[in-house]
Each structure stands twice: as C-alpha cells, then as structure tokens.
Design a protein around this nucleic acid. Sequence first.
DNA 1: CGTCTATTTGAATGTACTCAAAAGCGGTGG
DNA 2: CCACCGCTTTTGAGTACATTCAAATAGACG
Lengths: 198, 198
Amino acid sequence: MDIQLLQRNIERFISLNQDEIDFLISKVVIKKLRKRQYFLQAGEWCRYQGFVNKGCLRTYEIDEKGAEHVVLFTPEDWWVGDLYSFYTTEPSKLNIEAMEDCELFIFDKDSLEEIYTHIPKMERFFRLLMQNALIALSRRMMSSMTQTTLERYCDFIQRYPEIEQRVPNHQIAAYLGVKPESLSRIRKQYLQSDKKTS
Amino acid sequence: MDIQLLQRNIERFISLNQDEIDFLISKVVIKKLRKRQYFLQAGEWCRYQGFVNKGCLRTYEIDEKGAEHVVLFTPEDWWVGDLYSFYTTEPSKLNIEAMEDCELFIFDKDSLEEIYTHIPKMERFFRLLMQNALIALSRRMMSSMTQTTLERYCDFIQRYPEIEQRVPNHQIAAYLGVKPESLSRIRKQYLQSDKKTS
DNA sequence: CGTCTATTTGAATGTACTCAAAAGCGGTGG
DNA sequence: CCACCGCTTTTGAGTACATTCAAATAGACG
C-alpha cells in the first residue's frame, strides 16, 4: 500500500519513525468512491475522517431556501469530513460528494483512538487539523466580507489552480456565494483585464 | 470569590465535585478592564483565555483596507480569547476590547495545564469550546451567505437582546458586515415592519 | 454650552440579482 | 454520422439592495 502522500502530509506537522509509520499503515482503510457518490450525507453521523489520496470532493450545505453552498473543495492531499459531527456523533448538516472517482484513506473513531494511544503525537496532529479548519474558515469569512467577488475569484484560481479546471463553474459560483450568471460575467471581466494582476 | 457564573458555565458540559471546584477557584485570576482597554491587541500572543464575569467585550479584526470587522461580542457568561493564537503562540490578528468596565477570570497556558492534570474532564470542556467556536463561525458564514441583512439583524437582536442595547450601532453594523448608514436604513424598515415577526 | 462623535437622511452609483432566452457542449440513439 | 436531448454557460434587460459622498440632526461628555 502506498501511503507516501499521507505520510508527507502528516510529517508537515509532526515527525514519525518507521514503527509509527508501520502502525499507521496497519490502520489505514481504503475507500473508493465513484463520481457522484457521497462520502457523507446530511443527517448522517460522520463516522470517518478521510485523507484524499486521489480525486476531488466537495463539501456543501443546503440552506432553508434550498440553495447549495459549497463550503470547500478537497482535492488530493487534503483531509475531508465533518469534524464536528465526527467528534460529537451528532448528525451532520453537510453533504460530501465525490466530484471524480476518488480514493480515500479513512479512519473511524476507534482506529483513531488506537492511533492516539500508540502515537500520542497524532493527537496533536488532529487538533492542529481542527485549528486549521477554524483559521481557514475565519479567513474565508473575512475575505467574503472585505473583498469583491472578482478579487475572491482571483484568489480562488491562484490558490486552487488545479481545482478551477476540474469543477464546473456553477459549483465555483456556489463556493464564492454568487449565482452562476454572475460568475460568468465576472470571468469575462477577469479575462478582459490583465490576468497577470493575479 | 464568587465563581457561580463560571461554575454553572462549565457544568453545562461536564460535572464537577467540590474538590474540583476548589481547585479551580485556586487557579482563577481576576482581571479587571476599564472601558476601551484591550484584552488583546493584534500582533500580540494571546496569553489567556478569559471568562467574562461582568461586562462586555468585542473581538474585531482590521482588514487590508483599514475597515473594522466585528467577529463577535462577548457579554457575561461567555469565553473570550483567540484560541488559535493561544494554542500556537503565534501573534494574533484579532483585537479584543472592553466595551464596558469588565471583570474577567483569566487562565494562562500553565494554569490550564495544571487544571487538565487535576481535572482531566476540563480538557474535554476546552475542546468543546473550540468546536463550538467552529460551529458558531460556520453558522455565521452560512447566514451571511443566505440571509438578507434585515433577517440577520432580526436574528441578532433576538439572539442577543441585551447586547443590542449595550453597543453602539456602528459596531453592530461592523458585525453584520454593512455600513452604519445601511444599518440605519435597515433599522427603519425593521421598526416600520411588524416587530413580532422576529 | 460647546465640541466631538454617532446616527439619520438624501441622491447618485454600482454590483449582484431575477427572469428569460440563446448559445455551447456532451452524450445517446437512430 | 447526424439529430436530438439535457445540462452548462453566456448574454440581455430590468430590479433590488448596499454603497459612496455629503450634509443635517441628535447625543454624549467635559
């Protein structure tokens, strides 16, 4: 089993010796999802945290008015799951859908507990993941309050250049919080203006 | 020392026996702030988590364009601090200012560690605080994407009826993400419309 | 009482919205 | 291979809402 990507992902925050890596490998469960399959549906308890080894997913929420809002996209090398539901065991309000065929490494609460016991550093790693989620959300909040949609679109495509090619525009619109028609007009502006400004 | 409010706050999530309460009391440090004093300024490391026993603070951020954005208001019975900076020891981007004379119970990292050691349940309590911060932020994010400003204003005043009386309107505007002039017009609508609709 | 700040009001502008329709694109079946 | 269908993206026209800038009013504090 090739967990290269996962290993490097973890080692950005903490370092692991060979025993620890071997133990981790013993706990990895592979989950494959076909395009349009759900990793999580609203109403379910989020049983797993997943590491995206291949493919790309989108996490979205449906509001009272029935509109979809993309919370985030998770391509390779990202973690995916509803941390809140996972820890509280409460039903999630999020939907997580494979946008392409995906390969995930998943961990349920029990495996994670065993990992914590064997490799206490990993507790730190997951707490950091949660903190990062908090920070990322704060940033998005700020940028949605302070920047124009064009600026946020520029940020998006330079921050996630791969994703921009891989997902349909109307979902990027749902991420930016505008209607597809508006995004279309914004892209026109963007293409007309100096792209190098990004 | 009267930690009634703090005690009840904690016991909403976990239960404590008398020994644990006594230990907690021994660790409490009181911090008084006069109106306009800062609990935290951007650039500093957030050394303390504070429980607001009296008064009300506002946490805000200043964006690249120089505009203030209120992240949240924290009246009595709320916890205040920048959890991210606190845990990472990185400089905070947030400002936390007393809007009235305040009395806080503050805990630094060392005290907290001792508390965790003596009362392991408290670790759970603080992890829950962080999760709640994450959820609260997600909700705000959603509501700012899906609701009109009038709806968000209604939500705000029914959710925090006390605060509405206590803070100047331009700061409520900075919380809702609109200009004070806009909030003024929205309040006019609100007063003209049926208030019971809230 | 006067100064400083907060709030309200007005008019013009801009940005995203709705609704509606057209164009583009991909896949299926004749 | 082409015709057709469904879905995505683009374009257009008119509307709604918040913004800017400017000025007037109201409140707070010394």
